[in-house]
Design a protein around this nucleic acid. Structure first.
Length: 280
DNA sequence: CTCCTGACCTGAGTGC
DNA sequence: TGCACTCAGGTCAGGA
């Protein structure tokens, strides 16, 4: 479920728990998720201190004091829980980090658990010096909430693309972090049909779509922040929260603007939701 | 290159 | 209750 706003929510929850704290113990319950986990992962984490927790697209990047980066992608079903007492691990709890203020783990501060039933997520560990050329990151498009993103960028990036704009929005090499929910939501707020050819997103349409992407993602992050305050009690699961969705999952319901029933269609095997009257 | 399909995996929901 | 079936917010490899 995690798209940019959910991953950002996870990052915000993890930062104060991890930064400047030590991994007093690391549990790794299996040797692969989507792909094999780094060899000896638990041993390589044990005793290390986190210096910084960042996000890039849908990835969480956790820098360690030995100049390695722990990378986390939540896939479709991954989530993180933060406990302040040692939890009982369930079937799909694959990794747990016991955090402490010092290298001696006499009194742990938190237990951070990665749960992923479908195991579409992945974890890697690599040298900070190689991050820029790291395979999964180097071709990623700009952050939609960063300075490099604009209507002009969108127009250039979509130029010549014959596929539907909905698919282009899901392409992480064009824009980082947008997934199936927020693609539909942003297109609704921009008044653009998910079927429209990406190459025709120019001029006023590009301005509207860029603005809608920023607005939609910001609002969702705010909701995540709200649920973080309300919901991240000990044992609280991070990465899922109630969202204000205008069209996603609402086929047959009235469009909030014109009351026309919301429609669903499948594009490249993925559901898109839209208002046939408001979106052209 | 670009674009689409199928594969990966488990659990929740639906219909009979 | 049980069973069969569909679908789910991600990405990648492979082929047209």
């Amino acid at each position: 479920m995690p798209e940019l706003p959910e991953v950002e929510t996870v990052r915000r929850a993890l930062a104060p728990v991890l930064e400047q704290r030590y991994i007093a113990a690391a549990f790794v319950g299996r040797d692969d998720l989507r792909w094999p986990l780094p060899p000896n992962l638990a041993a390589r984490l044990q005793g290390r201190r986190f210096t910084h927790v960042a996000r890039r697209g849908k990835y969480v990047l956790m820098t360690l004091d030995d100049q390695n980066v722990l990378l986390l992608h939540l896939g479709m079903s991954g989530s993180v829980r933060i406990h302040d007492r040692a939890p009982t691990l369930g079937r799909h709890d694959h990794i747990m980090l016991t955090m402490a203020d010092g290298e001696q783990a006499t009194s742990p501060t938190h237990y951070v658990v990665l749960n992923d039933p479908r195991r579409f997520g992945w974890v890697d560990l690599f040298a900070l010096s190689t991050q820029a050329s790291y395979k999964l990151l180097q071709h990623m498009g700009p952050e939609p909430l960063g300075n490099a993103f604009s209507a002009e960028y969108l127009q250039t990036a979509f130029k010549g693309r014959q596929g539907p704009v909905k698919n282009a929005l899901l392409n992480q090499q064009l824009i980082a972090g947008i997934g199936n929910i927020y693609a539909s939501e942003a297109l609704f707020h921009a008044g653009i049909s998910p079927r429209r050819k990406a190459a025709t997103i120019a001029g006023g349409r590009a301005v509207r779509l860029a603005a809608a992407i920023v607005k939609t993602l910001r609002a969702a992050i705010e909701d995540g922040g709200t649920s973080l305050r309300d919901h991240v009690q000990p044992g609280g699961e991070i990465g899922y929260f109630v969202q204000r969705l205008a069209v996603y999952g609402r086929a047959g319901e009235a469009c909030q603007i014109c009351t026309t029933p919301i429609k669903m269609l499948v594009q490249s095997g993925r559901s898109s939701f839209y208002c046939p009257r408001c979106q052209r």
